[in-house]
Design a protein around this nucleic acid. Sequence first.
DNA 1: CGGGATCCAAGTGTGGATCCAC
DNA 2: GTGGATCCACACTTGGATCCCG
Lengths: 228, 228
Amino acid sequence: MRRNAEPPPRDEAELLARAEALAGLTLGELGGRRGLAPPTSPRRAKGWGGQLLEDCLGASAGSLSEPDFQLIGVELKTLPVDPAGKPLESTYVCTVPLAHLASPLWEDSNVRRKLARVLWFPLVTSRGAPVHARQLGTPLLWSPSAAQESRLRADWEELMELVSLGRAEEITARHGTVLQIRPKAADSHARTWATDAEGRRVRAPPRGFYLRTTFTAALLARHYAPGG
Amino acid sequence: MRRNAEPPPRDEAELLARAEALAGLTLGELGGRRGLAPPTSPRRAKGWGGQLLEDCLGASAGSLSEPDFQLIGVELKTLPVDPAGKPLESTYVCTVPLAHLASPLWEDSNVRRKLARVLWFPLVTSRGAPVHARQLGTPLLWSPSAAQESRLRADWEELMELVSLGRAEEITARHGTVLQIRPKAADSHARTWATDAEGRRVRAPPRGFYLRTTFTAALLARHYAPGG
DNA sequence: CGGGATCCAAGTGTGGATCCAC
DNA sequence: GTGGATCCACACTTGGATCCCG
């Protein structure tokens, strides 16, 4: 990837215009424009669509801990949906900081920063259909409503309190109503540095924050539903 | 590399025996034993000989900040020499910690740890000869004499005092009588984190500690010279 | 159905050093 | 001669996510 990437968009209007121009294309067609063939196995296609879109829309290359579109502060997220528009998967947000004991503030959190402004790109994914047939829907430029941010914040504070106490091991994907914590690693053997309840540096599985499908489903529904 | 590496030696005697059995071989012959052909361009061969030898002698794979032979606490260093046995290059020891302000102690330094016990392997390198013709000399298991350690320590303390003051930028390869600091990076654009004179985190070129050739020449001479 | 497990690409850092222009 | 610049391999990390079995 990162071959012949587009220049960064200068403002949200330009980004949205570019994005809307891609609606309706399949990943096969989009890849063809850049001379790239989608992986044939779905397992090997994880992330491929998202990175292809980044190139096509001019996201800054490999920006670390920066929004995908740094200049204008927008994060790009593809969202696999079924033909009815219902999200099929949870959405990864960012890694969970397991090594810092100090109880952090929502205002300073990566979750809040990442979700402050998002360009959602639905990707219509039919069960059993090949990767190249996945089809881009209509993109949506979004910021959390007050109610949405409250829910995110409540979950985040509850989860991070456990993390700050060195009790991250107790957290499962069942915690959190809209935001959850799940493994985020190459495999279950991966380890990163964490702080345990006694303040010692220990090895623990890396984790990530994810948005539940109920949250992204509601978000899409508010914009695309008849009368929404 | 790391293909079919040998098991680690159990003690210094076993390591030295294995090493001595390789004396006289060329890199071409040694690589042939493992089915590996030396790079044809000298530029692309940097480090190749050293890593090949690690495999042949059973060094622990990719051990980070650990001696090459962890079990027995020995570091392996190849040393390019001319046909008369005189070192052709300085010897890289370890990276310079640029980010920590606290003035460190020689006793805790990586330089001291790395050089506490070294298996030196001369590699006879004739000017203009191809990589495969470089020939292993007689290995030497070494620890610093009291006088050698005093010199290393004096240089290290002088250099690290400047580093601790955030004045690493003032250091050139001209400092130090036996130990020097030089760039250690993919290229001159590389940057790592450092602390400046005002205590701010800044970007700076990565540096390494190197032994001057005068030091390694004297070290070899003491063992191999007639009457040494 | 969804919680736990996994997959790819690319950037970064470290360890192995020697190259080469001035 | 040698100070500054460079070269390769590989582990690790992060960012992009979706897979898939119980």
